[in-house]
Structure formats: structure tokens, C-alpha cells
Design a protein around this nucleic acid. Structure first.
Lengths: 132, 132
DNA sequence: TTATTATTGTAACTTTGTCGCATTAATTAA
DNA sequence: TTAATTAATGCGACAAAGTTACAATAATAA
């Protein structure tokens, strides 16, 4: 029997932050946007809850931080599959690339349940700004 | 002017641990295999040095840990490209898949410099053991 | 053998994230 | 509307990952 969830003010606030952003956010981002008014443990718990519900997905980045993004296009059932993420090495923005991509084949004997693909590089904005 | 590197005993020990393993290792693994005799900061510094030299590459995993693996097949120049890694969710082994894979295309305006692709699932050994 | 300086160990520190527990508040029943 | 139930929150303590400053040590070159 699952615990039933409650629709609290804090959850709404976190969800608003997610909705208002077009890129993935790490804890620091949430803390800043919530003006430090919400406890760290609460933020993490709420985000983890959203992940468990399939509303949000996690992106683990080389800087050791975890980023969270709303699952808009992949809300359906297999929201764990086919995630392609992009990280700009200049402005450090992390975002979801919504275009489908070819999932790499594994050698015989392996079974895939999830795939995380993170491409680093320059986003369009930083490319123009640096003139690369 | 780059600092010149020195070939120290500690570096050799760390390199031996890497060579003796057929999977990627996290700090905890190094510490265990080195019997806790080497300082944490030293281990991290040496591993970071190997990464900078292109001998080793990093894999960042959802558990928040960083794994390190010898760059055997991709030793050449563009060792950052085309990495496909596999993580067994049962035995927690992380390894490099040496087969080439199709690098996903980015939308126009983006430039890729690196790609990290981590596939989670069951490895052949755990598949047989669990009878899945 | 000596001088130079890269490397190491130590300790302190930062950041990320988790956990137990008392308190608060959302929901349900009365 | 009020009272009862229990999910959710805030707090504090904690653990793990990783970094940094600095003094001591040890490769390398002279």
C-alpha cells in the first residue's frame, strides 16, 4: 500500500521553479530561486519524490552535482529511456535535447534498463558570443 | 611551460591497480586495493593527473561517485569521444564497452566536444545468476 | 653529492546528500 | 467546523566525495 501524497505549498513552490526554467537545475539553483527559505533536506526529498513519480528526471554531471528537469515530452511510461542531455561548458547550462536519438546497441548478453547520455560542448548562444 | 612529471612509486602503484582491473574503479576501490596506505588527496591527485595526460578517463555515475578506467583502446588523440560505458545495477560493476557506437546528432547551432554515455542494466554474469 | 622542485601526507574545509526525530499542516472522518 | 490521522517539513547531526594550503619528502638534474 503506497502512502498517499499531499499537495503542499513547498511542493508547489519547487514545481513552479521547475516549470519556470527551460534548463535543468541543481540544488544550488533551487536554493537561490527559493531565496534560501526552504530546507535543503526538504528540497532534496521533494525532488526525489518527483523523480519517483516520473514527473522529473535526474542528470548526473561530471562536476559531481545532480540536475533535475521536468519530464515534459517523456512524461509517458518509459520516461527513463532515450534521454539526451546537453551541457554547455561555457555557461554551464544543462538542458534536455528533445530529439530522438539512436540508442547504442550493447554486446550480446547485456540487458539495458536505462541510458544516460550527456553531450558537452558549446550551446548556440555561447558559440556566437565567443565567435568560435 | 609545463611542469615536468616524475615517475613516483605512488603513481606506479595507482597505475598497477588500474592495469590489474578490467572494470572502472572509484576511490573506495583504490583505497581497498591499496590497503588504505595511500592518502585520499594523493589518490585523487594522481588520478586527475592521469586524466589530464589522457591515460585515464572518468565516468560519473548516478550514485555520485566518479569511476576511473584505463584508456586502452582510445589512447590516441580523441580519447574523449565515443565512450560508451555500462553499469550493472546488480553487481555495480562499471565497464567500458569497446564497440563503436553512433554518436547522436545535436540540433543545429550546438557544438559537441565530449560525450559521456552510460547505459545501466544487467551484465551477462548477473543475467545468468538471476535467471532473468 | 647537492640543489631544485614535483610530489606526498596531514589536516582542515567545502559541497553534496541523507537520516532520525520532534513539530507542523494537509487530508479525512465525525 | 472540528478533531484525528499521518504525510511532510525543519532542524541538527552526520557521512561521503573531493579540494586546498602548507610543511616535509623524494625524484631528477646539475
Amino acid at each position: 500500500m503506497d502512502k498517499q501524497k499531499r499537495n503542499t505549498k513547498t511542493k508547489q513552490l519547487v514545481m513552479n521553479v521547475l516549470s519556470d526554467s527551460d534548463s535543468a537545475l541543481c540544488y544550488e539553483d533551487f536554493d537561490r530561486r527559493l531565496s534560501g527559505k526552504m530546507d535543503r533536506a526538504t528540497v532534496y526529498r521533494i525532488l526525489q519524490g518527483f523523480c519517483d513519480e516520473g514527473k522529473v528526471h535526474k542528470i548526473t554531471v561530471e562536476n559531481g552535482r545532480t540536475y533535475y528537469a521536468l519530464c515534459l515530452h517523456c512524461q509517458a511510461k518509459n520516461h527513463n529511456d532515450k534521454h539526451l542531455h546537453f551541457r554547455c561548458v561555457r555557461c554551464e547550462t544543462i538542458l534536455c535535447i528533445d530529439e530522438p536519438f539512436v540508442i547504442p546497441a550493447l554486446p550480446a548478453g547485456y540487458r539495458m534498463t536505462d541510458i544516460q547520455c550527456l553531450i558537452s560542448g558549446h550551446c548556440p548562444n555561447c558559440l556566437t558570443e565567443t565567435g568560435l
